[in-house]
């Protein structure tokens, strides 16, 4: 940090903040926003979650148990003629699906991207060819149809980003009412890893003539398999 530059800016800011006309700035920080109570019955939550995600052209699959969930993932991989895939390594549900796909002869590519040098470029190129990415999720958000993915060891960012099809496996009880609820349940969620992403539907753009088209940089398809 350039200390002199910092000190110059800080001094200017303190003078400015005190002098400027800032409507409503005299009040203290308003604290946490308290919202009118939500209905939180799990049956309502999953229904809302599915409704919201499907309205964005995402797919929601229900599976009574892990076996059924794995079967759904296999069918999705099949439908897309998948030969290689990228998957989280430390998630129980995802591990079951990955082993099953590997038994069927599909190749699981390593997630690890080298920090620097030509190895970095070649590992990216290798991962870049995967047709399918499989991840877990920390939370599903009913009010927006979102999934919340925290990265960490064994839980890469690229599995939900580079392949054209992204499959998320999540247990029913991880679906909560909203992002506010997720943060209340897990206060260090946002900063536990170097990256947290809240994904709300497939990648999309409406830049040209305000016409929607999907899969511009991220996945064009997102499937959420809800177990339980």
């Amino acid at each position: 940090m350039n200390t002199t530059e910092r000190e110059r800016m800080r001094a200017a800011l303190d003078r400015a903040s005190a002098a400027g006309f800032l409507p409503e700035a005299a009040a203290p920080h308003p604290g946490r926003f308290v919202q009118a109570a939500d209905t939180v019955a799990p049956a309502v939550l999953i229904e809302r979650f599915a409704h919201e995600l499907e309205s964005l052209a995402g797919h929601v699959h229900r599976a009574p148990d892990v076996e059924a969930a794995v079967a759904i993932v296999k069918r999705i991989a099949d439908d897309h003629g998948t030969r290689s895939f990228l998957a989280w390594r430390d998630d129980d549900l995802v591990r079951e699906a990955s082993s099953s796909l590997e038994r069927d002869g599909l190749v699981q590519k390593p997630q690890n991207v080298a920090l620097a040098g030509p190895e970095r470029v070649s590992s990216l190129a290798e991962i870049g060819t995967c047709a399918l990415g499989i991840t877990g999720a920390d939370f599903g958000l009913a009010d927006t149809g979102s999934v919340v993915l925290g990265c960490g060891p064994g839980r890469g960012r690229l599995a939900s980003l580079l392949p054209p099809v992204h499959v998320v496996m999540i247990r029913l009880e991880r679906i909560v009412a909203s992002l506010a609820h997720a943060l209340a349940a897990d206060p260090t969620l946002a900063s536990r890893g170097s990256n947290l992403v809240v994904i709300t539907g497939p990648s999309r753009t409406a830049d040209i003539e305000f016409t929607l088209s999907r899969g511009v940089h991220g996945p064009r398809e997102i499937h959420v398999v809800v177990v339980g």
Binding site: E52, G156, S191, S194, T200, P202, S203
Partner: peptide, 23 residues
């Protein structure tokens, strides 16, 4: 939209043990 498709929260560079992201 209720949320944009990707709300991306970056907290520091890649950490020990993490598999991707800038160093």
């Amino acid at each position: 939209q209720k949320l944009s498709v990707y709300t991306n929260i970056v907290t520091g560079p890649r950490r020990d043990g993490e598999v991707d992201g800038p160093r």
